[in-house]
């Protein structure tokens, strides 16, 4: 990633990965306040989404540190904090 990350960029990446992982969500709006659980993303798929996003952001964060966020916004916030070191 060239330029410094911002929160919106990470949210967009997460939403893209959610759509990639669960193609059935096509046509359904997804916002930062949605949680993946409420969107019907199962636990393996949630890990897939987070790892795929981390790969795109070139962030190497142990998955055990990724528990806690309640929605996409909070997940993006956590990723942003971790990316800042």
């Amino acid at each position: 990633m060239g330029s410094p990350l911002d929160n919106t960029e990470i949210i967009n990446i997460l939403i893209e990965e959610i759509r990639e992982t669960v193609p059935e969500l096509e046509g359904q709006p997804i916002s930062a306040s949605d949680s993946m659980v409420d969107l019907g993303v199962n636990s393996i798929e949630r890990s897939e989404v987070i790892l795929a996003a981390m790969e795109r952001l070139d962030l190497k964060i142990p998955m055990v540190q990724m528990h806690g966020p309640k929605n996409i916004q909070e997940l993006a916030d956590l990723l942003l904090v971790k990316s800042a070191g």
Partner: peptide, 9 residues
């Protein structure tokens, strides 16, 4: 060279 990102599936 990026085993950290191996998809769980």
């Amino acid at each position: 060279d990026k085993l950290e990102f191996v998809p769980p599936r």
